[in-house]
Protein backbone atom coordinates (compact mmCIF):
# COMPACT_ATOMS: atom_id res chain seq x y z
CA UNK A 1 0.00 0.00 0.00
CA UNK A 2 2.97 2.31 -0.51
CA UNK A 3 1.06 3.55 -3.51
CA UNK A 4 -1.50 5.23 -1.30
CA UNK A 5 1.25 7.11 0.50
CA UNK A 6 2.74 8.22 -2.78
CA UNK A 7 -0.68 9.29 -3.90
CA UNK A 8 -1.24 11.35 -0.79
CA UNK A 9 2.16 12.96 -1.18
CA UNK A 10 1.32 13.84 -4.75
CA UNK A 11 -1.88 15.47 -3.61
CA UNK A 12 -0.07 17.43 -0.93
CA UNK A 13 2.72 18.59 -3.19
CA UNK A 14 0.42 19.71 -5.93
CA UNK A 15 -1.58 21.61 -3.32
CA UNK A 16 1.53 23.35 -2.06
CA UNK A 17 2.61 24.32 -5.55
CA UNK A 18 -0.54 26.26 -5.94
CA UNK A 19 1.02 29.22 -4.22
CA UNK A 20 -0.24 32.60 -5.13
CA UNK A 21 1.91 35.22 -6.74
CA UNK A 22 0.02 38.47 -6.79
CA UNK A 23 1.54 41.16 -8.93
CA UNK A 24 0.32 44.69 -8.97
CA UNK A 25 -1.92 44.44 -11.99
CA UNK A 26 -5.53 44.85 -12.91
CA UNK A 27 -6.81 41.40 -13.74
CA UNK A 28 -9.35 40.86 -16.44
CA UNK A 29 -11.06 37.55 -16.97
CA UNK A 30 -12.16 36.24 -20.33
CA UNK A 31 -14.72 33.49 -20.19
CA UNK A 32 -15.22 32.10 -23.66
CA UNK A 33 -15.58 28.82 -25.56
CA UNK A 34 -11.96 28.30 -26.63
CA UNK A 35 -12.61 24.71 -27.62
CA UNK A 36 -15.71 22.88 -28.71
CA UNK A 37 -18.45 23.78 -31.10
CA UNK A 38 -18.09 27.54 -30.83
CA UNK A 39 -14.29 27.60 -30.62
CA UNK A 40 -14.07 29.95 -33.58
CA UNK A 41 -16.09 32.63 -31.80
CA UNK A 42 -14.50 32.07 -28.42
CA UNK A 43 -11.00 32.47 -29.77
CA UNK A 44 -12.11 35.66 -31.51
CA UNK A 45 -13.40 37.09 -28.22
CA UNK A 46 -10.23 36.09 -26.40
CA UNK A 47 -8.01 37.59 -29.08
CA UNK A 48 -9.97 40.82 -29.14
CA UNK A 49 -9.81 41.19 -25.35
CA UNK A 50 -6.08 40.53 -25.31
CA UNK A 51 -5.52 43.00 -28.10
CA UNK A 52 -7.41 45.71 -26.29
CA UNK A 53 -5.46 45.03 -23.11
CA UNK A 54 -2.24 45.25 -25.09
CA UNK A 55 -3.28 48.58 -26.56
CA UNK A 56 -3.98 49.90 -23.08
CA UNK A 57 -0.71 48.58 -21.71
CA UNK A 58 1.18 50.28 -24.52
CA UNK A 59 -0.31 53.53 -23.29
CA UNK A 60 0.82 52.81 -19.76
CA UNK A 61 -2.16 50.87 -18.45
CA UNK A 62 -4.89 52.25 -16.23
CA UNK A 63 -4.28 54.11 -12.98
CA UNK A 64 -0.62 53.23 -13.38
CA UNK A 65 -1.38 49.52 -13.36
CA UNK A 66 -0.89 47.11 -16.22
CA UNK A 67 -3.77 44.99 -17.45
CA UNK A 68 -3.48 41.23 -17.27
CA UNK A 69 -5.86 38.92 -19.09
CA UNK A 70 -6.84 35.48 -17.81
CA UNK A 71 -8.79 33.17 -20.08
CA UNK A 72 -11.02 30.37 -18.99
CA UNK A 73 -12.52 27.95 -21.46
CA UNK A 74 -16.21 27.31 -20.78
CA UNK A 75 -16.84 25.30 -23.99
CA UNK A 76 -20.10 27.20 -24.25
CA UNK A 77 -21.65 24.99 -21.56
CA UNK A 78 -23.40 26.04 -18.37
CA UNK A 79 -21.61 23.72 -15.95
CA UNK A 80 -18.17 24.50 -17.27
CA UNK A 81 -19.12 28.16 -17.04
CA UNK A 82 -19.98 27.80 -13.37
CA UNK A 83 -16.54 26.29 -12.79
CA UNK A 84 -14.91 29.06 -14.83
CA UNK A 85 -16.72 31.70 -12.82
CA UNK A 86 -15.35 30.33 -9.57
CA UNK A 87 -11.88 30.02 -11.00
CA UNK A 88 -11.81 33.55 -12.32
CA UNK A 89 -13.18 34.96 -9.08
CA UNK A 90 -10.47 33.11 -7.22
CA UNK A 91 -7.88 34.76 -9.44
CA UNK A 92 -9.23 38.10 -8.22
CA UNK A 93 -10.26 39.45 -11.58
CA UNK A 94 -12.26 42.66 -11.45
CA UNK A 95 -14.17 42.18 -14.64
CA UNK A 96 -15.10 39.33 -16.94
CA UNK A 97 -15.62 39.48 -20.68
CA UNK A 98 -17.94 36.83 -21.99
CA UNK A 99 -19.21 34.41 -22.59
CA UNK A 100 -20.28 33.77 -26.15
CA UNK A 101 -23.30 31.58 -25.41
CA UNK A 102 -26.14 32.87 -23.28
CA UNK A 103 -26.34 29.82 -21.06
CA UNK A 104 -22.67 30.05 -20.13
CA UNK A 105 -23.11 33.69 -19.21
CA UNK A 106 -26.26 32.88 -17.24
CA UNK A 107 -24.70 30.11 -15.22
CA UNK A 108 -21.77 32.28 -14.23
CA UNK A 109 -23.84 35.35 -13.40
CA UNK A 110 -24.57 34.64 -9.78
CA UNK A 111 -20.98 33.85 -8.84
CA UNK A 112 -19.79 37.13 -10.31
CA UNK A 113 -22.58 38.99 -8.58
CA UNK A 114 -21.65 37.60 -5.17
CA UNK A 115 -17.99 38.44 -5.71
CA UNK A 116 -18.77 41.88 -7.09
CA UNK A 117 -17.08 41.16 -10.42
CA UNK A 118 -18.32 43.05 -13.45
CA UNK A 119 -19.48 40.95 -16.37
CA UNK A 120 -20.25 41.85 -19.95
CA UNK A 121 -21.55 39.44 -22.55
CA UNK A 122 -22.90 39.30 -26.07
CA UNK A 123 -25.48 36.76 -24.93
CA UNK A 124 -28.89 37.66 -26.22
CA UNK A 125 -31.18 35.53 -24.07
CA UNK A 126 -33.80 37.51 -22.19
CA UNK A 127 -33.29 35.53 -19.01
CA UNK A 128 -29.92 37.21 -18.61
CA UNK A 129 -31.33 40.33 -17.02
CA UNK A 130 -34.19 38.61 -15.21
CA UNK A 131 -32.34 38.63 -11.90
CA UNK A 132 -31.25 42.23 -12.27
CA UNK A 133 -27.73 41.80 -10.91
CA UNK A 134 -25.90 45.12 -10.83
CA UNK A 135 -22.67 43.46 -11.94
CA UNK A 136 -24.14 42.34 -15.23
CA UNK A 137 -24.00 44.29 -18.48
CA UNK A 138 -24.87 43.08 -21.90
CA UNK A 139 -23.33 44.51 -25.01
CA UNK A 140 -25.75 43.34 -27.65
CA UNK A 141 -29.43 43.51 -28.34
CA UNK A 142 -31.63 41.23 -26.28
CA UNK A 143 -33.44 38.36 -28.02
CA UNK A 144 -36.80 39.97 -27.58
CA UNK A 145 -35.69 43.01 -29.58
CA UNK A 146 -34.31 40.74 -32.30
CA UNK A 147 -37.56 38.76 -32.22
CA UNK A 148 -39.71 41.84 -32.69
CA UNK A 149 -37.59 42.88 -35.63
CA UNK A 150 -37.55 39.39 -37.11
CA UNK A 151 -41.30 39.01 -36.82
CA UNK A 152 -41.83 42.43 -38.35
CA UNK A 153 -39.48 41.55 -41.22
CA UNK A 154 -41.12 38.19 -41.89
CA UNK A 155 -44.74 39.19 -41.52
CA UNK A 156 -45.00 42.82 -42.57
CA UNK A 157 -42.01 43.52 -44.77
CA UNK A 158 -41.85 40.25 -46.69
CA UNK A 159 -45.52 39.30 -46.34
CA UNK A 160 -44.73 35.68 -45.61
CA UNK A 161 -47.91 33.85 -44.87
CA UNK A 162 -46.71 30.44 -43.81
CA UNK A 163 -43.63 30.42 -41.62
CA UNK A 164 -41.89 27.33 -40.26
CA UNK A 165 -39.63 27.82 -37.26
CA UNK A 166 -36.72 25.50 -36.50
CA UNK A 167 -34.42 25.59 -33.50
CA UNK A 168 -31.99 23.29 -31.73
CA UNK A 169 -32.02 22.29 -28.05
CA UNK A 170 -29.69 25.01 -26.75
CA UNK A 171 -31.07 27.71 -24.49
CA UNK A 172 -30.11 30.47 -26.87
CA UNK A 173 -31.88 28.95 -29.84
CA UNK A 174 -34.92 27.79 -27.87
CA UNK A 175 -35.27 31.22 -26.30
CA UNK A 176 -34.92 33.04 -29.59
CA UNK A 177 -37.29 30.69 -31.41
CA UNK A 178 -39.88 30.93 -28.62
CA UNK A 179 -39.91 34.70 -28.71
CA UNK A 180 -39.92 34.81 -32.51
CA UNK A 181 -42.92 32.47 -32.57
CA UNK A 182 -44.71 34.65 -30.03
CA UNK A 183 -43.91 37.86 -31.91
CA UNK A 184 -44.96 36.43 -35.27
CA UNK A 185 -48.31 35.48 -33.77
CA UNK A 186 -48.62 38.95 -32.28
CA UNK A 187 -47.89 40.50 -35.65
CA UNK A 188 -50.68 38.41 -37.14
CA UNK A 189 -48.44 35.95 -38.93
CA UNK A 190 -48.96 32.26 -39.22
CA UNK A 191 -46.47 29.81 -37.69
CA UNK A 192 -47.22 26.51 -39.39
CA UNK A 193 -44.57 24.44 -37.66
CA UNK A 194 -42.08 24.62 -34.81
CA UNK A 195 -39.53 21.80 -34.89
CA UNK A 196 -36.27 21.06 -33.19
CA UNK A 197 -33.14 19.53 -34.63
CA UNK A 198 -30.31 17.93 -32.75
CA UNK A 199 -27.24 20.07 -33.14
CA UNK A 200 -24.37 18.28 -35.00
CA UNK A 201 -26.60 15.38 -36.05
CA UNK A 202 -26.24 16.57 -39.67
CA UNK A 203 -29.24 14.71 -40.98
CA UNK A 204 -32.02 17.29 -40.99
CA UNK A 205 -33.96 15.90 -43.93
CA UNK A 206 -36.73 14.25 -41.87
CA UNK A 207 -37.71 17.57 -40.29
CA UNK A 208 -37.32 19.44 -43.56
CA UNK A 209 -39.46 16.92 -45.40
CA UNK A 210 -42.19 17.36 -42.84
CA UNK A 211 -41.94 21.12 -43.32
CA UNK A 212 -42.03 20.66 -47.07
CA UNK A 213 -45.39 18.99 -46.85
CA UNK A 214 -46.79 22.14 -45.24
CA UNK A 215 -45.77 24.38 -48.15
CA UNK A 216 -43.97 27.09 -46.19
CA UNK A 217 -43.12 30.54 -47.55
CA UNK A 218 -40.22 30.92 -45.20
CA UNK A 219 -38.10 28.85 -42.84
CA UNK A 220 -36.70 30.64 -39.83
CA UNK A 221 -33.74 28.94 -38.14
CA UNK A 222 -32.77 30.07 -34.65
CA UNK A 223 -29.68 27.91 -34.10
CA UNK A 224 -25.97 28.20 -34.75
CA UNK A 225 -24.11 28.45 -38.05
CA UNK A 226 -22.67 24.93 -37.94
CA UNK A 227 -26.20 23.54 -38.31
CA UNK A 228 -27.70 26.46 -40.22
CA UNK A 229 -25.47 26.02 -43.26
CA UNK A 230 -26.32 22.33 -43.55
CA UNK A 231 -30.00 22.99 -42.99
CA UNK A 232 -30.03 25.45 -45.85
CA UNK A 233 -28.12 23.09 -48.13
CA UNK A 234 -30.50 20.23 -47.42
CA UNK A 235 -33.50 22.48 -47.85
CA UNK A 236 -32.35 23.31 -51.39
CA UNK A 237 -31.54 19.70 -52.07
CA UNK A 238 -35.08 18.64 -51.14
CA UNK A 239 -36.36 21.29 -53.48
CA UNK A 240 -38.15 23.34 -50.83
CA UNK A 241 -38.71 26.67 -52.43
CA UNK A 242 -38.98 28.79 -49.30
CA UNK A 243 -36.96 31.75 -48.14
CA UNK A 244 -34.36 30.93 -45.51
CA UNK A 245 -33.96 33.38 -42.67
CA UNK A 246 -31.38 32.68 -40.00
CA UNK A 247 -30.98 34.04 -36.50
CA UNK A 248 -27.94 36.04 -35.49
CA UNK A 249 -25.76 33.06 -34.57
CA UNK A 250 -25.73 32.03 -38.23
CA UNK A 251 -23.61 35.07 -38.90
CA UNK A 252 -20.31 33.36 -39.60
CA UNK A 253 -18.36 32.74 -42.77
CA UNK A 254 -18.59 28.98 -42.22
CA UNK A 255 -22.30 29.24 -42.93
CA UNK A 256 -21.52 30.03 -46.55
CA UNK A 257 -18.98 27.21 -46.81
CA UNK A 258 -21.45 24.70 -45.44
CA UNK A 259 -24.42 25.81 -47.45
CA UNK A 260 -22.36 25.96 -50.65
CA UNK A 261 -24.28 27.17 -53.66
CA UNK A 262 -27.46 27.13 -51.56
CA UNK A 263 -26.15 29.97 -49.41
CA UNK A 264 -27.31 32.35 -52.11
CA UNK A 265 -30.56 34.00 -51.19
CA UNK A 266 -30.53 33.07 -47.53
CA UNK A 267 -30.90 35.93 -45.11
CA UNK A 268 -29.47 36.33 -41.65
CA UNK A 269 -30.76 38.87 -39.22
CA UNK A 270 -28.11 40.41 -37.01
CA UNK A 271 -26.56 43.66 -35.95
CA UNK A 272 -24.13 45.01 -38.57
CA UNK A 273 -21.10 42.83 -39.44
CA UNK A 274 -17.64 44.10 -38.43
CA UNK A 275 -16.66 45.64 -41.73
CA UNK A 276 -20.02 47.34 -42.15
CA UNK A 277 -19.47 49.47 -39.07
CA UNK A 278 -19.04 53.14 -39.75
CA UNK A 279 -17.32 54.17 -36.53
CA UNK A 280 -13.68 55.12 -36.86
CA UNK A 281 -12.59 53.51 -33.62
CA UNK A 282 -14.18 50.24 -34.64
CA UNK A 283 -12.39 50.29 -37.99
CA UNK A 284 -9.07 51.04 -36.33
CA UNK A 285 -9.54 48.20 -33.89
CA UNK A 286 -10.41 45.79 -36.67
CA UNK A 287 -7.34 46.73 -38.63
CA UNK A 288 -5.21 46.22 -35.54
CA UNK A 289 -6.85 42.83 -34.99
CA UNK A 290 -6.05 41.74 -38.51
CA UNK A 291 -2.47 42.91 -38.17
CA UNK A 292 -1.99 41.17 -34.81
CA UNK A 293 -3.46 37.78 -35.68
CA UNK A 294 -3.15 37.72 -39.44
CA UNK A 295 -6.82 36.96 -39.96
CA UNK A 296 -10.14 38.67 -39.92
CA UNK A 297 -12.32 38.78 -36.89
CA UNK A 298 -14.72 35.82 -37.09
CA UNK A 299 -17.82 37.89 -36.48
CA UNK A 300 -19.36 40.85 -34.75
CA UNK A 301 -19.51 39.09 -31.44
CA UNK A 302 -15.81 39.46 -30.70
CA UNK A 303 -16.07 43.16 -31.42
CA UNK A 304 -19.14 43.57 -29.24
CA UNK A 305 -17.32 41.96 -26.34
CA UNK A 306 -14.25 44.12 -26.86
CA UNK A 307 -16.67 47.03 -26.88
CA UNK A 308 -18.05 46.00 -23.51
CA UNK A 309 -14.54 45.72 -22.11
CA UNK A 310 -13.71 49.15 -23.51
CA UNK A 311 -16.72 50.60 -21.73
CA UNK A 312 -15.63 49.09 -18.40
CA UNK A 313 -12.06 50.31 -18.78
CA UNK A 314 -13.20 53.80 -19.64
CA UNK A 315 -15.40 53.79 -16.59
CA UNK A 316 -12.42 52.99 -14.36
Amino acid sequence: MRKLVILSLAVLISALFAGTAIADTIKIGVQAPITGQYANEGQGIDNAARLLAKQYNAKGGILGKKLEVFTCDDEGQAMKAAICAKELVQKDVIMVIGSYTSCAALAAQKTYFRAGVLQTTDGTSDDLVKEGYWTFFRNSNPNSAAAVFTADYLVNFKDFDRIAVVSDFSSYATGLADSVVAEIKKAGGNVIDYSKIKSKSQNFTPVLTKIKSMNPDAIYFAGYYSDGGLLRAQQKQLGIDAAFVGGDANDNEEFINLAGSAAEGSKIINVPTPDMLAYDSAKKFLAAYEKEYGKKMPSTWALLNADGMYAFLTAI
Binding site: K196, I197, N203, T205, P206, V207, T209, K210
Partner: peptide, 12 residues
Amino acid sequence: FTALISGYVSSV
Protein backbone atom coordinates in the same frame (compact mmCIF):
# COMPACT_ATOMS: atom_id res chain seq x y z
CA PHE B 1 -37.21 4.56 -37.97
CA THR B 2 -35.46 7.85 -37.16
CA ALA B 3 -36.73 9.49 -40.34
CA LEU B 4 -40.33 8.45 -39.72
CA ILE B 5 -40.28 9.24 -36.00
CA SER B 6 -38.87 12.72 -36.47
CA GLY B 7 -41.07 13.29 -39.50
CA TYR B 8 -44.37 12.08 -38.09
CA VAL B 9 -44.18 11.80 -34.30
CA SER B 10 -41.80 14.25 -32.72
CA SER B 11 -38.49 15.70 -33.78
CA VAL B 12 -37.89 16.70 -30.17
